[in-house]
Design a protein around this nucleic acid. Structure first.
Lengths: 227, 227
DNA sequence: GACGTAATTTGATCGACGTCAAATCTCTTC
DNA sequence: GAAGAGATTTGACGTCGATCAAATTACGTC
């Protein structure tokens, strides 16, 4: 398989730190890379649609990808937001052969695209590749379980607080973090309309959360845990 | 590993049809079975709790198991209901070593319990076992993705209609199905309070759905798709 | 730095669903 | 078959978050 563009050093570093590729032997890594090509896509570009025959799975090198489903009436629901290092559609390696959701770039993005059949073949020969696939699948499963539990257990302000806390240093005290993407993406990720996210932030003001653009300031991390 | 009870023929048949065990070579199946023991548990019996060290994963032979998380205030949210043939906690084979949720029986149940370390070792030697793990993980991932999408896209009556439709013959016309468990379990599975499920059923009456106990009668399956 | 577009916020309204309480139904058990 | 516990339904009510519209803010481009 040939590459649509070269794998630059930054992209290569990200790719090697993926849960899918980290820890592979040199030999396996070379074989896996030969089943891969790099795509550079503009913002809001469709990667695949639900129901299409699945022949490639992907790993995000830079940018963000939105995975979503459509209702009959055309409403969209985000299932997952993938950032650098995340892979998606690898759940189809050993199941159905049609994509289970739509994927589109949320920003200008670089993706590694892996040929499913080639990876299947490699995984059946190289134990460490099979193990990498299992590790990657496990990680996803756990993160989606978190997503279901969050949706069902917590209110919008609580979900936002959880998101912030997961990105703060563990101790108490003040913290300053920066959103890696637009708020509307975060909203979809948390299963909220953008308006609801905005209101959740404003609810959190009384818990010491200040938002200006993508910058989020927390007066006291320990305090935010009580929300 | 020894067995708490013998594997009877019915249980064995279920176990062999699991996405985890089906298609294993005789040799692999024997090795896997040697890492397994059977548990017979009464209703509402805790299998493990969130945060406990994960040393076993499970496959349901008969009965039903509820996987759920607790909020700080003690509210419960179901993540998944596992029936005969489903496995759970196998996502920890190659990740974290603590259970990510609570598990308890929803009825008197028979479970196959697999020693994670032994299965890990076997999977690293037998290709088909590794592949079985991947297939099992993939299937779960896809089913939980459906769960997130359903929660976010559909209302209670629509989710109930989807559940019914998934269990009806594909053609139009009338259908009669039977719930395999209590309605309160179905409610949790669909992310609803029992009262909301009840009201959803009564909303569906005008779409030709009649419920009496565990029996669900559908006047016209094709019609139900429009809900 | 000004402009125009896109993103975000805010207000108002509404529907969906959770919760609590009480009534009714359905099983199990004796 | 009767009793009783547990499950389900129904009613009343409150809250949360979606939606629509309008105002405001932020950002990329020239």
């Amino acid at each position: 398989m040939n590459s649509n563009s070269k794998l630059d050093n930054r992209d290569r570093a990200v790719l090697m730190k993926t849960s899918f590729m980290q820890g592979l032997s040199t030999n396996s890594a070379i074989r896996v890379l030969s089943a891969m090509s790099v795509l550079n896509l503009p913002v809001r570009h469709s990667i695949f649609r639900e129901g299409e025959k699945a022949e490639l799975f992907y790993c995000v090198l830079s940018g963000y990808v939105r995975l979503y489903r459509l209702s009959h009436e055309g409403r969209e629901a985000d299932i997952r937001i993938c950032g650098p290092g995340d892979s998606f559609a690898e759940c189809l390696l050993y199941s159905d052969n049609a994509y289970a959701y739509n994927a589109q770039t949320a920003e200008h993005s670089a993706l590694a695209a892996f040929d499913m059949q080639m990876i299947r073949d490699i995984a059946s020969e190289e134990k460490d590749v099979a193990q990498a696939v299992m590790a990657s699948l496990s990680r996803h499963l756990l993160s989606i379980i978190d997503c279901v539990a969050n949706d069902r257990l917590f209110t919008a302000p609580q979900r936002v607080a959880n998101y912030i806390l997961a990105r703060c240093p563990v101790d108490g005290g003040p913290a300053l973090i920066r959103l890696p993407f637009q708020k509307s993406l975060l909203a979809g990720m948390l299963g909220l309309a953008p308006e609801a996210l905005s209101r959740a932030f404003s609810t959190l003001r009384k818990s010491g959360v200040t938002v200006r653009g993508r910058a989020i300031q927390v007066v006291d991390v320990a305090n935010l845990r009580n929300v």
